[in-house]
Amino acid sequence: MKIVVTGSLGHISKPLTQALVQQGHLVTVISSNQARQAAIEDLGAKAAIGTMEDVDFLARTFKGADVVYLMETLAHNSFFDHSVDFVAGLSKIGENYRQAVEQSGVKQIIHLSSIGAHMAEGNGILRFHYNVEKSLNQLPADVHIKFMRPVGFYYNMFAFIPSIKAKGVIIANYGGHEQEPWVSTTDIAAVIAEEIEKPFSGRSVRYIASDEISPNEIAHTLGEAIGRNDVKWLEVSDEQSLNGMITAGMNPETAQGRRNGNERRSPWWGIVRRLLRQ
């Protein structure tokens, strides 16, 4: 099959591209970075250099594809850019995708969404996933879409490094012994590759998780791995969490959204647990 992968050589798109090439598919990888072209070609894929903001470029690249994998991203420093409306920016990319899919005539889509995408509010910055799903669902009925909704990413734990180094603690506005679902990006890529091989029909949702582990277990495991048995998970108030992110230079509006989206007591956590255990 001819497959288009968005997301350049990111944590999901790279292993996904590798898997699809190994399966014998003809893969085109979209990247905004010309310097990535050689690395994409080294994987056995074709590089299409352009941006998610360019609908015409997207439509041309999608045209003739059997399946397109869609994901939204902004520049890595977007959280700290006070001129960036994070939710609006990613939602606009989703609308660009909708237009490009319609113009290109592609009929099979896999979209990287998230837990919380079924909620219009109460899910912090994850709200953009709700917006994008809503936009893509406006496509004609003969466009078949699989929405992938992974839980929290393991690699987000890299954000814990500064506080572990400085104070031996992980600081968040949730904690304790209650287990929460987490996922590896390589597992997400494997699930997407699996879904590409399966028949497409209508609109469907699949939740993705690798494991369930409590915050206290995470602190113990990470501490043990680096030879520090004193690493603790410190639960702080929502207000302390918000102020810490703003002090670090994060866009206050984005910080508010991250604070809300990280709140483990949000209702979608319970929903996700039930879905994963069915």
Rank of each mutant, 00 (worst) to 15 (best):
K167F: 13
A255P: 05
G24N: 11
M119C: 10
V101R: 08
A65E: 09
V101M: 06
I110D: 06
N77A: 01
T221F: 10
E253A: 14
A47W: 04
I145K: 15
V106S: 09
G116C: 08
N77E: 05
E224S: 03
I161C: 01
F80A: 03
G10F: 02
H25I: 00
I145W: 15
T51S: 14
T254V: 09
P15R: 10
T51G: 12
L275I: 08
T221S: 14
P199R: 11
V236W: 05
P199V: 09
N216F: 10
M148N: 08
P15G: 04
P215C: 08
I115H: 02
V169G: 03
E41P: 01
Q99T: 12
V29Q: 11
G249W: 13
E178W: 06
L70Y: 12
I188W: 07
A48V: 13
I208Y: 06
G10W: 03
P215K: 11
L70G: 08
G122K: 02
D211M: 02
L20V: 03
K134N: 10
L90G: 10
A248G: 00
S163P: 01
G270F: 00
T51V: 07
Q256K: 15
E197T: 03
T51Q: 11
G227T: 04
D187F: 03
F158R: 00
I161F: 07
H111N: 14
I93R: 14
E178Q: 05
T73K: 11
P215M: 09
F57Y: 13
I226A: 06
D42R: 07
P150Q: 12
